[in-house]
């Protein structure tokens, strides 16, 4: 029986690796990346996948081999009577810690770029100076929809004045431009998740959280709420449309006209409680 069980344990690395190899063929894999920074995240994912994959295969195969080799059935040899090995302990303390430290340091820039170097703070890194980038739009999560607020085209893109444009769940952004979003929540926690943009950020009531990225491909994609926000969490769905600058401007103007035509579509100020 021992041999049989050893083989069962051999199945783990074999099928494990196999499933990761075939998955991409069926598109069961990372969704299309349309962002500028996304490839760094994907690269890290693959890097760790390879590294842990190697560790995984080696450890599991070693386990299998020991089980196969030292099955008690059919051989009565004296066991290796040992209480451990000092040098081995040192080896398998040093090596993994080196590996782990390397990963830790290796990823820091990617993190800084996507969460720390806020363009809203400008090159000088201080919020509220002249060189700061103005937010492209303000996104407010509320049960169970995404409220979007674009600055009007006239008043040089400042948020919060009369000509702001309000849209719901229909997120449009210009391609190949730095986008800076001011993320807020009107009620509970939500999470602003653009799978294809490799962007995810919780929206917290009482906080204004900056989110920035740059799209490299036009098209329509999913906007997902990734933080439990109540029974309707699953249907808090938006659509992301990446389009050229012109199309984007047209769309904005059109929205503006619709809005001025039907004032009642204006949401109350409740959306932004400071």
């Amino acid at each position: 029986m021992g041999k049989f069980w050893s083989l069962l344990f051999l199945l783990v690395p074999v099928l494990g690796v196999a499933s990761f190899v075939v998955a991409p063929w069926y598109k069961f894999w990372l969704p299309l990346d349309i962002s500028e920074h996304g490839h760094t995240i994907d690269h890290l994912f693959y890097f760790i996948l390879w590294l842990t994959g190697v560790v995984f295969v080696i450890t599991e195969c070693v386990l299998f081999w020991f089980l196969w080799r030292y099955d008690s059935k059919g051989r009565a040899h004296p066991v290796q009577y040992t209480h451990g090995s000092h040098s081995l302990e040192i080896v398998w303390t040093i090596v993994p810690s080196a590996v782990l430290l390397f990963i830790a340091i290796y990823q820091m820039n990617a993190w800084a770029d996507s969460k720390i170097h806020n363009p809203g703070a400008g090159p000088d890194g201080i919020i509220g100076t002249a060189d700061d980038m103005l937010p492209t739009l303000e996104v407010t999560g509320r049960q169970f929809e995404w409220r979007l607020r674009y600055p009007g085209l006239k008043a040089q893109g400042k948020l919060g004045d009369a000509d702001d444009i309000f849209v719901v769940n229909d997120l449009h952004i210009p391609v190949n431009e730095e986008i800076l979003i001011e993320l807020k929540s009107a009620d509970v926690l939500h999470s602003f998740f653009l799978p294809n943009m490799r962007v995810k950020q919780d929206a917290v009531p009482g906080m204004k959280i900056p989110v920035w990225f740059r799209a490299t491909q036009t098209g329509t994609y999913d906007l997902v709420c990734a933080e439990l926000c109540g029974w309707g969490h699953y249907k808090m769905k938006g659509r992301l449309t990446v389009e050229s600058r012109d199309d984007f401007n047209h769309w904005l103007e059109q929205k503006y006209r619709e809005q001025t035509a039907t004032k009642d579509s204006q949401p109350t100020e409740k959306g932004d409680s400071e």
């Binding site: 990372l30 995240i41 994912f45 990823q107 490799r198 962007v199 990734a226």
Partner: peptide, 9 residues
Amino acid sequence: TPVDIFIHD
């Protein structure tokens, strides 16, 4: 952390 941005939740 960067990978967690994508796989969190």
